[in-house]
């Protein structure tokens, strides 16, 4: 009996310490020191939220760079990957279709080698980045759609990619930030 009462009292004390005080103290520190980062790194345009720079969103306009395909179509509740095994026939046939679509969309030849992230589903379904190779293949489409020179688009791409360069991380570019930068330059799309 004493074992049970002691266990219960210990559990209550530990719950208050690690389940209430600990998360609240951390939240307090977060609010004071990192008010933007701790609340989702939101991006605003004309006073309204247009997304989080960490969470990928769906881009389909030809004048925007497109993110990776997403199994959950960038829905967040819950987000998920495909969980298809390497030899899954559904996986392979949809992959084939996505490769065709990607080549068509970007006006690429049928022998063009594709960067792997261009047509595969990410793990979270919310991958905010694409590889630089992937972005470069989209430059011509974006420039044509916006009716601005390719060099201009490339220049913006490299500026953004340099900004996203980080330690212990693959060279990638944040699609949303890239598109925000493009939109601020203008062009029709």
């Amino acid at each position: 009996m004493t074992t049970i009462t002691r266990s219960l009292r210990m559990l209550i004390v530990m719950t208050i310490m690690t389940g209430v005080i600990y998360p609240l103290v951390i939240t307090g520190i977060a609010m004071i020191c990192f008010p933007v980062k701790s609340t989702g790194s939101l991006v605003y345009s004309q006073g309204r939220v247009i997304g989080s720079e960490l969470i990928g969103q769906k881009f389909t306009f030809p004048g925007h760079f497109h993110g990776r395909p997403s199994f959950c179509d960038y829905s967040t509740l819950p987000s998920q990957g495909s969980n298809w095994g390497p030899g899954n026939s559904v996986y392979l046939s949809t992959l084939k279709q996505r490769a065709v679509n990607y080549r068509e969309e970007n006006n690429l030849s049928s022998v063009q080698v594709l960067p792997p992230d261009a047509i595969t589903f990410s793990a979270s379904g919310l991958d905010p980045h694409i590889s630089l190779e992937n972005a470069l293949l989209q430059v011509s489409r974006v420039a044509t759609a916006r009716r601005i020179p390719e060099n201009k688009v490339k220049q913006i791409l490299f500026v953004e990619a340099a900004r996203d360069k980080a330690i212990f991380q693959k060279p990638v570019v944040n699609v949303m930030k890239l598109n925000v930068a493009l939109d601020s330059v203008g062009g029709i799309y």
């Binding site: 990776r68 990957g81 495909s82 969980n83 298809w84 390497p86 030899g87 996986y91 392979l92 992959l95 084939k96 490769a99 080549r103 049928s110 022998v111 063009q112 080698v113 594709l114 960067p115 792997p116 992230d117 047509i119 595969t120 589903f121 990410s122 793990a123 979270s124 991958d127 980045h129 694409i130 590889s131 991380q169 693959k170 990638v172």
Partner: peptide
């Protein structure tokens, strides 16, 4: 299996985040 769809070297990024590789 990925090489014939034109994926470079058959690197499998399915279920992998691009920032990690």
């Amino acid at each position: 299996l990925l090489i014939k769809y034109g994926i470079a070297h058959g690197v499998s990024m399915e279920g992998v985040e691009s920032r990690f590789g």
